[in-house]
Computed example of a mutant assay.
Amino acid sequence: MADVARLAGVSHQTVSRVVNDHPNLRPETRERVQRAIEQLGYRPNTAARALVTRRSGTIGVIGSKSGYWGPSTVHRTVQAAARAAGFFVSSVNLPALTRTEVVDAIDHLRSQGVEGVVLIAATDEALDVARSHQAAGLPVVVVEGDETKARWTVGVDQVRGAAMATEHLLGLGHTEIVHIAGPQSWTEARARLAGYQEAMYSAGLRPAPPLIGDWSARSGFALGCDDIVARHDVTAVFCANDQMALGLLRALHESGRRVPEDVSVVGFDDIPEAAFLIPPLTSVRQDFGAVGRRAIEILRAVIEGQTPPESLISPELVVRTSSVVPPVRK
């Protein structure tokens, strides 16, 4: 640090203020010090910095080993955003999102001195654990959490996204629309169901009872075989994620029901494969990169005692050829 101070023509304390992102510095001074840091290849001693600032500079990230596209993508983007923001990341992947697993994970991270946690596990049990640790003074930002159950949450507006998908089908002329929902212990699944129901009620229609899946293609296939293929009154299905839509597509194909000629199908998430399914799948796109960056922005603001930014991110409906006007009834 002394070499940086000498090259920049400033004091040792000024270099320390730049390294620690102190706000009360003249822009030209900050720029001169940063040029000296880059020229000398200086890297702060993080252990010494932690002793001085009494901050570890480390955050925890908790996710699951489910392999689902949304949570796994958010996990990667949160870690990348955290590193870009100057944090070290301690990551925990849980085999199951039970209360015991989440409690143990947060306790493990607290023992490492993390300054906060991003929890990518918006189940009811995980939210209860997050709320208890928030009350105990540890900032916990829950991805896709229920804003009524957790103090700090971030995610795509699930209700709006589901309403957009349903309104798209309604706008095409469909009235018999079934929703294949996710497990109702997940806040995202309940929000998507609520969005579907709100759109149906707003159109003056009674929403059909939801068919409950478990996010997997297998459950979408099973529900399609057991409930959808025999119902010739149903002209459209909104699935709570693309994996269940994929399973439904196979069930409809094997039954001889054509998509989209007989049944329109809309998914949620817009996984990379959605555009290459047969037919290409209409889906609600979630900007997981924005979710990861926003999670870190909120956590950093909370840690530093500032006002967190807006927590909800707008979804986007990507229309493809799996959804068209309903067939003409003879």
Score class of each variant (00 low, 15 high):
residue 303 I to Y: 00
residue 199 A to G: 10
residue 239 C to T: 10
residue 288 F to C: 02
residue 210 P to C: 02
residue 164 M to F: 07
residue 330 K to E: 12
residue 261 E to D: 15
residue 140 V to G: 13
residue 272 P to T: 12
residue 252 L to P: 13
residue 206 R to M: 15
residue 109 L to I: 09
residue 163 A to D: 00
residue 178 V to K: 01
residue 321 T to E: 14
residue 47 A to S: 14
residue 156 V to K: 08
residue 96 A to E: 14
residue 151 R to Y: 02
residue 288 F to W: 11
residue 269 D to E: 11
residue 293 R to L: 09
residue 269 D to M: 01
residue 314 S to G: 10
residue 243 Q to G: 03
residue 84 A to T: 05
residue 136 A to L: 14
residue 9 G to K: 08
residue 223 L to T: 11
residue 256 G to F: 07
residue 94 L to R: 04
residue 160 R to C: 06
residue 119 L to Q: 10
residue 105 A to I: 06
residue 94 L to P: 11
residue 297 E to C: 11
residue 6 R to E: 14
residue 172 L to K: 05
residue 272 P to R: 06
residue 193 L to K: 05
residue 71 P to M: 05
residue 58 T to C: 13
residue 131 R to T: 13
residue 113 G to W: 07
residue 29 T to F: 04
residue 37 I to G: 00
residue 224 G to P: 07
residue 81 A to W: 00
residue 104 D to R: 15
residue 301 A to L: 08
residue 241 N to H: 12
residue 317 L to N: 09
residue 282 T to R: 00
residue 109 L to E: 07
residue 330 K to N: 09
residue 234 V to P: 00
residue 241 N to K: 10
residue 198 E to S: 13
residue 267 G to M: 07
residue 142 V to P: 10
residue 304 E to I: 11
residue 208 A to C: 06
residue 166 T to P: 03
residue 254 E to F: 00
residue 3 D to F: 02
residue 227 D to I: 01
residue 240 A to S: 15
residue 38 E to L: 08
residue 115 E to F: 10
residue 174 H to K: 08
residue 21 D to G: 07
residue 208 A to H: 14
residue 259 V to N: 08
residue 116 G to N: 06
residue 165 A to F: 02
residue 205 L to H: 07
residue 82 A to S: 04
residue 268 F to I: 01
residue 314 S to L: 08
residue 184 Q to M: 15
